[in-house]
Amino acid sequence: MPEQSNDYRVVVFGAGGVGKSSLVLRFVKGTFRESYIPTIEDTYRQVISCDKSICTLQITDTTGSHQFPAMQRLSISKGHAFILVYSITSRQSLEELKPIYEQICQIKGDIESIPIMLVGNKNDENQNREVESSEGEAMAKKWKCAFMETSAKTNHNVKELFQELLNLEKRRTVSLQIDGKKSKQQKRKEKLKGKCVVM
């Protein structure tokens, strides 16, 4: 599968109910669909344009696998960048990210070269807020990662989240420029260009 060499894997972690899948859905689909079918492989893909070529952003959502530490470790070892989601309405959900962060450190080693984003989701539910933005920021500083508050419900900061995450990638090979169907044509054009040899 040669196309996969181009894939950039983003793994989304977080406690149950913080809105991991909602964020992913919002980003990939732009909106909530009435009927959403997860087994389709394309569901978690987004074609994005990189510096020079097109690459595929793959999002691994770990929803439903909280009980499987092994599956989490598998995702970590295969992932390139990480999004750690908690809900601003639940301090507990922030606490639950700690062991996951430690896992990432353990498996990946050099944590500073890996793009990690700490995300406080459910930003729209300010009245139920349990975790202040400043606390999230402080945690991010401690973890040497970036921080952002989002709302999948109101689509606040969702695209920006992925954009920022990719900007963190030190190699700068990927940046975000989403455009759905056009990208396929572009891809084709790029391919054609690539094959053109000037003698």
């Binding site: 899948s21 859905l25 009435e34 079918i37 997860p38 959502d61 439903g64 499987f68 599956m71």
Partner: peptide
């Protein structure tokens, strides 16, 4: 675990009542 993940996804991605 993967089967459960699929079911969870269908559940979280879709509303039960419309």
């Amino acid at each position: 675990p993967l089967l459960l993940k699929d079911v969870t996804f269908i559940h979280e991605g879709n509303k039960t009542f419309l």
